[in-house]
């Protein structure tokens, strides 16, 4: 029987990959500056080992309802059932909303130096409102704009340097 790879196991793969990637990067750190064999490479090596070992343990681990961190031989494997139960409790994932929220953040990142904090921020705040399913888009847009404008001026007054669209720094 082929078992489905659970989300947690994908994460475990990710942790191991990160460890391997860092191990590869370790070569770029030269080790000659250390005292008594303890150079700048020593601590990263420990972290790399920790990541790979812990990732491996997470991959091997099967959860069951009597408690976390029980290794497979400890009892029956009801990880999949448990995960299904948790999913039901959590509710369906709405990836469209995840994409809207992510898109708003990425758009904000791309636009902030072009159209200034206030307008980019308005878009971000409005995007988040869309992602959280509000029913009054026009009101949201207005409130987002007022919020961004207010914060912009508050923080400018506090001495934080933020990009503006107009040279006078009104927007």
């Amino acid at each position: 029987m082929i078992k489905r790879v659970t989300g947690e196991q994908w994460l475990a793969f990710g942790v191991i990959l990160l460890g391997l990637f860092m191990a590869w990067q370790l070569q770029d750190i030269s080790n000659d500056a250390g005292y008594a064999g303890i150079g700048p490479r020593f601590f990263p090596s420990l972290v790399v080992t920790g990541l790979i070992v812990a990732g491996g343990a997470l991959l091997m681990q099967r959860r069951h309802r009597n408690g976390p961190d029980t290794i497979l031989s400890d009892g029956e494997n009801d990880a999949e059932q448990l995960e299904a139960e948790e999913d039901a409790e959590r509710g369906e994932a709405d990836w469209r909303m995840f994409a809207i929220a992510s898109g708003s953040l990425i758009a904000h990142m791309a636009l902030i130096s072009l159209i200034g904090f206030t307008l980019a921020g308005t878009l971000l705040c409005f995007g988040v409102c869309r992602a959280l399913e509000t029913r009054r888009p026009m009101l949201d847009l207005l409130l987002s704009f007022l919020l961004a404008l207010g914060l912009f001026h508050l923080f400018k007054w506090l001495g934080l340097n933020l990009p503006a669209l107009l040279t006078g720094g009104v927007l």
Binding site: L105, I112, L124, C129, E133, T134, S144
Partner: peptide, 22 residues
């Protein structure tokens, strides 16, 4: 929604103000 929007505004502002960099 507006609350989270505002929090993200503050978060991006805090991050951006560090070095003015995307």
């Amino acid at each position: 929604p507006l609350l989270y929007g505002g929090i993200l505004l503050l978060a991006t502002m805090g991050a951006y103000a560090l070095r003015q960099s995307w």
